[in-house]
Design a protein around this nucleic acid. Structure first.
Lengths: 197, 197, 197, 197
DNA sequence: AATGAATGAGACTTCATTCAT
DNA sequence: TATGAATGAAGTCTCATTCAT
């Protein structure tokens, strides 16, 4: 019966990652001990090590999740909305980010910050971050291209560069939200409206 | 003997912070051990603890430095240039950031990322980050105000909100530069040119 | 598996306390390092800290033991012997103390002296000492009361005060035995015989 | 001018011992650091080490002082009072102990307890304690002899043994006073009156 | 598969003592 | 002589990981 076992394995796996995420959200990756994860997951040390070879592997899994969540939701947005100006795309993104951040389970964007820092000296996480953010940014590049096709964005500029700027606003918004605490999609959209062509 | 001693103390203090910064740049705050800092500083354990009460205090000192460096240099820019459009201000800022990042001593912006993560669960660093970034952002708000006075920025939008967006581009640029590695002041300025009013 | 585990835990706990007691007997609380206790117990650092949160907790456990041993044995004496004059009670107590002190494991009364000193600036041990010695002294007060009932002790004196004096002879005996080394239950009983009513 | 220098040396020496005594009174010998002594004495590290070769030497000096103080004062009592029953001698001693203990500078009897503990594993202090307490006890033995001469003490008992018992009451009183806090010369004398022949 | 007690390297920090000035 | 910054051995405790049951 491979199905049941697989489901069981997946459930256990997620149980561990969720526990670790909750810990990392409050304490960061480094203050979170394996004992914390074990306690929070309700499993035993041996069980946890049956699913992950090391703490590093768990950290990578949380980082992957934290860096993906924004991505996944963002994709949805871009896929549906048709005539998509940079302003509209950004506004929709920020609103979704806040929705995710305010989920009952805790603010996963805090974990994304941990992942950024970790990527500076952890190759596995650097790889994940590169992959996820390259992908996310490609969506903004796509918006830039559409804008150029629509005539709303200067066609002489490399859409990659336009995408860089649009994408930059996402971590810039996140960071201000977490550290200064006074930005909202509304205030940010207002500022964008004043600045964007 | 106040003069000599004070200079001496300051030199030693800086010697330790510099050593710690080099370590944190390579390894992050948490993988950096006191033994690393002690070895790198060329002092003894006791000497280091004569200048800092704990590792946390050293971390705060590095974080302060990392979050200040951009600030200081940025201030210079804004003070001098007179007719300052958002685009000009941002371009100048990014160029300075890259100048700082490429200094021989190592890229201090990597440490800034560590500080962002640390601010999530370290009140001292959260305080420093809040203070430094509130101040830095206020400069962009000032630029927005000048733009409104000049008629180049929509006067009906709260300049605080415009400042939020301009400021957001700084960490957004930094993060892409460090993680994706393909942004430069030039590419970014090109993208900005296409997007900004 | 509660039974086996509980026994096991108790055995380990005692193994650590015994090891620590042996160390403290030779070196005192402060010269005894955790490394000493770990080596002497035959366990690992982690194992020891699985049973005690800190060195202080181990010290309290040894102090408790050292201050209790006299107490326990003394209670036995008082419970059985019926017509109990102060002289008889004291003689029996001293003989028991020496029996305990000369046990193969080492002289635990040396640890009691450490505990007295420690009680001066360690609230946990001060509390233990207060509790144990209040209890022990209450036995002597009981002897005083019986003496008053029997007509062998002046009924006009507060039995608490009589108990203070009787109890005082115990540490007085211990201290002389350990520092001057020339008192025995026999010499002491002889002196008591000459002095007591 | 050797006199001035000698006075100066003595003053400095005492200054250090007093400082160390104050520290040891509050914290015990082991929690007292050389830094504490240096700060409290108002001298420099080098200066302190000009007078004492090591912390151990300072500890011995404080222990000597603590074990002597009772001794000195006690001698005075015994020298003057002529017809001296054990009860009288003891009462006078306890009153003097409390006088000393309640001096403004702090309760030096707390330091005596430290010295007892230290004597268990410090030969220098064990030697001092032996010497001081042998001497102090000899005074009680002298009282016993006088009692035997006066016919108030049983002449068939070795006066050394009577002295052991009388002397025992001194640490017994001290310990109760410091740990249980409810004995006074008055309560103790009352108890003694009920018990002594 | 699961358990969780045990491991032990290594982290942070202290403090008695020295010595160049 | 006096200073006090510096030394570095040694102390307490943690925690990722393993393995006998």
């Amino acid at each position: 019966m491979p199905k049941v076992t697989l489901e069981h394995r997946t459930a256990r796996h997620d149980q561990i990652v969720e526990a670790a995420r909750r810990c990392a959200m409050d304490q960061g990756f480094h203050k979170t001990t394996m004992a914390d994860v074990i306690r929070e997951s309700g499993l035993s040390a041996g069980a946890v090590y049956g699913y992950f070879k090391s703490k590093d592997e768990i950290v990578s899994a949380i980082a992957d999740q934290a860096l993906s969540t924004v991505d996944e939701l963002f994709e949805g947005i871009l896929a549906t909305k048709e005539p998509l100006s940079p302003l509209t795309a950004l506004t929709a993104t920020l609103e979704h980010i806040v929705q995710i951040a305010e989920r009952p389970g805790g603010d996963i964007t805090r974990v994304a910050l941990q992942a950024w820092a970790e990527a500076m000296h952890n190759d596995a996480i650097a790889g994940i971050a590169r992959e996820k953010y390259t992908h996310l940014r490609s969506k903004f590049i796509e918006v830039a291209r559409r804008g150029q096709a629509d005539g709303t964005v200067d066609p002489d500029v490399d859409p990659d560069h336009v995408g860089q700027v649009m994408f930059a606003l996402v971590p810039g918004f996140l960071l201000q939200r977490l550290i200064l605490g006074d930005v909202t999609p509304q205030t940010f959209t207002a500022g964008l409206t004043a600045l964007l062509k």
